[in-house]
Design a protein around this nucleic acid. Structure first.
Lengths: 139, 139
DNA sequence: TCAAGATTGAGAGGCATTCTCATTCTTCTT
DNA sequence: AAGAAGAATGAGAATGCCTCTCAATCTTGA
């Protein structure tokens, strides 16, 4: 059984993930990112470090890292997945409808309620997705 | 200002939505559906009633009905949108990871917490998406 | 009944993502 | 350090879901 989240090269290698030049570039991009970049953005940024990275490799690597628990995939709007490193604690997202900004938040109470509701329905939650879409409250 | 949800032919007509043979077939499919069908399913079912319905018209009609507030679009997995009539009260979804079944639920407490969290972050929620993915609890 | 303009079917087009395959690279074993 | 096994790669083709284009047809208000 592996720990749920690993993101150092050695941890990944121990999981059987080969560390290539391209994968290092992609990991670097994810570590530096403050936003939730799309595959397209990750490709562009990775190429600044390693010219040779291809689109196919970005998608393949993101899939590998997602399976390893290193990366989280989000589907905020309908326009393609957005990625982030799974290196912090679990959180949900609030998307600013005016600016597209993504704000992270966490609520233990909501998580607890979710588990309660699922239990009432006879289910155990494996994972969940909670996204709030809103606009800044006028002063 | 229009009421948030309308789904009778006359209500739609009053909103400026023309009622065509194809749109009636699609509305009929949505009214009969207990599942959350994909565009593909809606096309197949609509054709049972009206052979002439095309894929383009299904997508166009679903977009029109979504804008009118008659239809809700869901993006559960990454494999294409799933639709439902917006004729009942708001609810969220629990997706059975083993069977793909979609269970609807509603929690006023969770809704309230969401609004509170958004308010703390200085936001008003426009809409949200909450999906729980889980498996039946073993007996 | 009619004209205006909305809707339609068929197929082309678009976009994000995945696949194919020959070549190159990482890693394990010596 | 060298070699072998097989995993990862780039390029571009292919896929899947969805949207657009356009000429023909329909719905609707007058």
């Amino acid at each position: 059984m592996s720990s749920p989240t690993q993101y150092s090269e050695s941890e990944l290698r121990a999981e059987g993930v080969r560390i290539t030049r391209q994968r290092l570039a992609i990991l670097h991009v994810l570590r530096e990112a403050n936003d939730h970049p799309r595959a397209e953005d990750i490709l562009a940024r990775a190429r600044l470090q390693d010219q040779s990275v291809s689109q196919a490799t970005v998608y393949r690597t993101l899939a590998v890292l997602e399976k390893a628990g290193t990366v989280l995939r989000n589907e905020f709007d309908g326009t393609g997945a957005r990625f982030e490193l799974a290196d912090r604690t679990h959180h949900d997202h609030l998307i600013d409808l005016d600016t597209g900004a993504v704000i992270e938040f966490h609520s233990a109470r909501i998580e607890r309620l979710q588990a309660e509701i699922a239990a009432e329905l006879g289910y155990d939650i494996e994972w969940h997705r909670l996204e709030l879409y809103g606009r800044k409250t006028p002063d």
